[in-house]
């Protein structure tokens, strides 16, 4: 047998990883089921998103032309803060009841389990935020040309926010007061996503082609998909053993 061919147990392992009852889908199903049973946690980030966006017309100016100018940035900042707020609980309950230790001890690849958890988190925060965003756009007088830019940029940007935020959540999971700390760690890393995300919406409003911005957001997402689970896994091992 040549060296390049994986041997039988490895092939079996690969097949198991991709199966519906493998570790990835198992972890994803568990994540979705747990969140579904605590529905208030599901809605809270969305309400927060809505409320933050309401503060701007009240706090700055209700003038429609002014609001239309700042709408891309405001919606993006609100989405970013809502994601950040929901990040702290990602590994917290698993850490407290010992599930996290079992996940780390299990023979399943940590990379896939972590990716599934982050994907589950995104499906329950980033995706609803993306769907809700056009409503906020209307409330803030975002021109209708910008709506597609808003939805597409959030669709590509919020998974990156979840991936990067999970690194911060994993680093602070062992600490009692992780809440403020996680924002200090994660916010500087969120800046590129915010810049290109709101630039995409602004581009869409002024009629510029969106492709470039979306390509960069996509590139950041692919980089995050490949690298962030490694960092999250390493951070979880450190936090749990520490």
């Amino acid at each position: 047998m040549s060296d390049s061919m994986p041997n039988r147990p490895e092939v079996d392992a690969m097949i198991t990883e991709c199966r519906v009852d493998g570790p990835f889908w198992g972890a994803l199903k568990r994540e979705l089921l747990l969140s579904y049973r605590r529905k208030s946690d599901l809605v809270n980030p969305l309400i927060f998103f809505l409320m933050v966006a309401t503060l701007f017309p009240l706090g700055v100016s209700p003038d429609p032309t002014f609001l239309a100018d700042v709408a891309p940035g405001v919606v993006w900042v609100a989405a970013l803060l809502a994601t950040l707020l929901s990040m702290d609980s990602l590994f917290r309950s698993d850490f407290e009841d010992g599930t996290l230790e079992q996940i780390l001890l299990s023979p399943q690849p940590l990379y896939l389990v972590v990716l599934a958890k982050v994907l589950g988190h995104w499906m329950l925060t980033g995706l609803p935020l993306t769907i809700l965003a056009p409503l906020l756009g209307v409330m803030l007088f975002l021109p209708s040309d910008g709506m597609w830019g808003l939805v597409l940029s959030l669709l590509l940007g919020t998974p990156t926010l979840s991936l990067v935020g999970a690194i911060g959540a994993a680093l602070t999971v062992g600490l009692r007061k992780g809440g403020v700390l996680i924002s200090l760690l994660v916010l500087p890393l969120y800046i590129p996503v915010l810049i290109f995300g709101s630039a995409a919406v602004q581009g869409a409003v002024t009629g510029l082609p969106l492709g470039g911005y979306l390509a960069i957001l996509g590139a950041m997402l692919s980089l995050g998909l490949v690298l962030a689970p490694l960092a999250i896994g390493a951070a979880l091992r450190i936090s749990v053993s520490g």
Binding site: V164, I167, L171, T172, G174, L175, K177, L181, L184, L185, P188, L189, P192, L223, L227, A231, A234, A235, I238, S239, S241, G242
Partner: peptide, 27 residues
């Protein structure tokens, strides 16, 4: 600095900040 001072165990603090510094380096 904040992460390093929040973690009490020296070894854990060093490892956690190293991960954060490396993530920052990519970024």
């Amino acid at each position: 600095i904040a992460l390093n001072s929040a973690i009490e165990s020296e070894r854990t603090a060093a490892q956690s900040t190293a991960v954060l510094a490396l993530v920052g380096l990519v970024n």
